[in-house]
């Protein structure tokens, strides 16, 4: 399989971005975008279509099996995980564009600074002040919520989220709903209030987040569950433990 990787390069946050077309060839039908980037970076002689040396492409990766969210980027214009996107999807076209996620500041090439997501979780105050126990009903909810990768794909497509706004976006929905079923009484008022302000009031329910999520998190179900608990003060959160 032969394909052109059209990568939006940028040496650092201050420098001017430019597109670089890199021809890539592989025998491996299952080769992913992550695999291609690894191979190009291992090849010191790799050259672009103009014959210029490519040099090291800066990108983030870690688990390579869609369990860590590190390698999120825009692939063919859509936010996806590089390790979960096979090149053969684009073989017919013969090219694929790779760009950094656009809602976050670029560090270099395909690497962005996603610290805003964590700052948002700090703002909402997502932690338990005292120990709590999950009952069997809320255990599944906590499991599903804990699967969130914090990759940022959802923020990229969310029409309501912008960095610095009061709405912390869908990336904070799962972490909140992990804890909301087991909050100790002393913490409910504070966290429910933060939820209402930073999530409930900002979400326009486009649910683009749910469609794009590489972990297939059911954001809508989480929202319904958390709204019931934090805003409408009803639902499973009030169920007494057996």
């Amino acid at each position: 399989m032969k394909i052109i990787l059209d990568i939006l390069r940028r040496e650092n946050a201050q420098s001017t971005p430019y597109h670089q077309q890199i021809p890539f060839e592989t025998e491996d039908e299952t080769c992913t975008v992550a695999g291609a980037l690894t191979e190009i970076n291992n090849d010191k002689e790799a050259a672009d279509s103009q014959g210029h040396l490519v040099g090291k492409i800066i990108w983030q990766s870690s688990c390579l099996q869609k369990k860590c969210g590190a390698c999120a980027m825009l692939i063919g214009g859509r936010p996806r995980l590089a390790c979960d996107t096979q090149l053969r999807e684009f073989a017919k076209k013969g090219r694929v564009t790779l760009e950094p996620l656009k809602k976050f500041p670029v560090v270099a090439d395909l690497m962005v600074d996603r610290e805003i997501m964590y700052a948002n979780l700090d703002t909402i105050g997502i932690w338990l002040k005292e120990s709590a126990l999950l009952d069997e009903d809320s255990s599944d909810q906590a499991y599903d919520a804990s699967r969130c990768l914090q990759c940022g794909c959802c923020l990229e497509v969310c029409p309501n989220f912008y960095p610095g706004g009061f709405f912390t976006g869908p990336a904070s929905v799962a972490p909140v709903s992990r804890l909301i079923s087991m909050l100790p009484e002393s913490q409910k008022k504070e966290l429910f209030h933060a939820y209402e302000k930073h999530i409930f009031e900002g979400c326009g329910k486009s649910l683009a987040c749910e469609n794009i999520c590489p972990a297939k998190i059911e954001v809508n179900r989480m929202l319904i569950h958390s709204n019931a608990a934090a805003v409408w003060k009803r639902g499973s959160f009030r169920r007494k433990k057996a």
């Binding site: 932690w127 338990l128 804990s146």
Partner: peptide
């Protein structure tokens, strides 16, 4: 265990626990 993702579940808990001290 937590189904077949125990590490991820433990990490989610410990990340939140650490966040308390980060805050």
């Amino acid at each position: 265990f937590a189904k077949s993702s125990t590490g991820k579940m433990l990490m989610a808990g410990l990340i939140d626990e650490t966040r308390k001290w980060e805050a």
